[in-house]
Simulated assay, not measured.
Amino acid sequence: MYNPNFKKLEREYIFPVIEEKLRQLRIMQPDLDIVNLGIGDVAFPLSPVFLEAFERALSDMKGRVIGYGPSGGYDFLKKRIIEVEDYPLEPDEIFINDGINHDISHFLELFSSPLRIGMFDPTYPVYGDAATLYGHEVIPLPCTPETGFGTSPPSMRLDAVFLCNPNNPTGTALSATSMARWIAWANEYHSLLLFDCAYCDFIRSPEAARSIYRFEGSKNVAVSFHSFSKSFGFTGLRLGYTIIPHEICAEKGSPSLHKLWNTIVNTKSNGTSYLTQKAGYYCLEEAARAEKSRLIAKYLASASRLKQILQPAGAAVYGGTDCPYVWWHAGNEMFDRLLNKHGIVTVPGSGFGKGGTGFIRLSGFISDIVLEKACTKLVQCVPYEIPNHRS
């Protein structure tokens, strides 16, 4: 008997749908020059300093027998993460993994009874799809331009809330004040905050919240998920980590979530490769972190340039400051018009929840060549595609 919760999924995962549309477009218009501002993947080869990190890691393995490692990761990487990020944590509160998505979805296995899980709408679709497949109830928390695409804590208890900060797809970040409110709410209602930090390294606004563990009371309620993918360009290499403080329990009197998660990890994982973890360790040295900052600035600059083209034409655009995504309130037909008429690939906002209807996401994760082509195309087509600026 297959899992009946598959029937409850409201939509197909958006990115394979886009790929199919692209495939059909290439058949119908083989000469159309296509510019992809869609999926947020790395756009540049691994930097020499990152390649050197892997070479050093490989050299460390010469003449040594390195078999299965600890399921939750090696202490050398955990201690380096704590040192660099200045986390108030112990090494065993960090679990090394091969990327965020697995842990975000598998974490919900810890709970047998159906949970009521809140999530921003719009937001990254994996949260809602995973919750639905495990039989939990998804409670949308509407995020609009009027609220800065954040939302205040509800005046009721939810078992857990997913917070993506900065938010994918809107590219906007919660302020420190907002984060403090969420932590206070979670402590009051004994709720969990599941904090997706995939884009935290991109935050530049001084008022935005970057690390949840700098807030009082956070270790009682917050689990966080981190990635090397976007900031270090590790999407093809896979490395991340999950933080579960010892203090967190699912409910009063129950075993700690840390203990339960440790059981899950030991049961289902043989650990992330030594090579990748040791390379990650070297990538946290000063020279590599400087290169990471350079790449982040480059992606943010690309998003800013896309935004600067759209705004003067009258487009209602958001994000692009603390995350390299530009969120354009463009109407329900803009995705298809840009794709089929102009060869510009974006992501329809409806793929991120009902709150994304009428929006499209443009990605700044693009090369210099793609950026120039995209800017040329947008300058030519945007004045004619925005109703109030047709000639």
Rank of each mutant, 00 (worst) to 15 (best):
Ile244Trp: 06
Pro245Cys: 01
His246Gln: 08
His246Asp: 09
His246Cys: 04
Glu247Lys: 15
Ile248Lys: 02
Lys252Tyr: 08
Lys252Phe: 11
Gly253Ser: 03
Ser254Lys: 00
Pro255Phe: 02
Pro255Met: 04
His258Asp: 02
Lys259Gly: 03
Lys259Pro: 04
Leu260Lys: 11
Trp261Leu: 07
Asn262Leu: 09
Thr263Trp: 06
Ile264Ala: 12
Ile264Gly: 03
Asn266Ala: 10
Lys268Glu: 11
Asn270Thr: 08
Asn270His: 12
Gly271His: 05
Gly271Gln: 01
Ser273Arg: 02
Ser273Asp: 01
Leu275Thr: 06
Leu275His: 14
Gln277Asn: 07
Gln277Leu: 02
Gly280Tyr: 04
Tyr281His: 00
Tyr281Val: 00
Tyr282Gly: 00
Tyr282Met: 00
Cys283Gly: 02
Glu285Pro: 00
Ala288Lys: 00
Ala288Val: 02
Ala290Met: 11
Glu291Leu: 10
Ser293Phe: 13
Leu295Gln: 15
Lys298Glu: 04
Lys298Ile: 01
Tyr299Trp: 03
Ser302Asp: 07
Ala303Tyr: 12
Ala303Asn: 10
Ser304Phe: 07
Leu306Trp: 07
Leu306Gly: 02
Gln308Met: 08
Ile309Pro: 10
Gln311Pro: 10
Pro312Gly: 13
Pro312Asp: 12
Gly314Tyr: 13
Gly314Ala: 09
Ala316His: 15
Val317Ser: 14
Val317Ile: 04
Gly319Val: 07
Thr321Asn: 14
Thr321Pro: 07
Thr321Ile: 12
Trp327Gln: 08
Trp327Pro: 05
His329Arg: 15
His329Gly: 10
Ala330Cys: 09
Gly331Leu: 01
Asn332Pro: 07
Glu333Trp: 08
Glu333Met: 03
Glu333Gln: 06
Met334Glu: 00
Asp336Val: 08
Arg337Pro: 03
Leu338Gly: 10
His342Glu: 14
Val345His: 06
Pro348Gly: 02
Ser350Lys: 15
Gly351His: 04
Gly351Met: 07
Phe352Cys: 06
Lys354Trp: 11
Lys354Leu: 10
Lys354Pro: 08
Gly355Val: 14
Gly355His: 11
Gly356Ile: 05
Thr357Asp: 13
Thr357Pro: 09
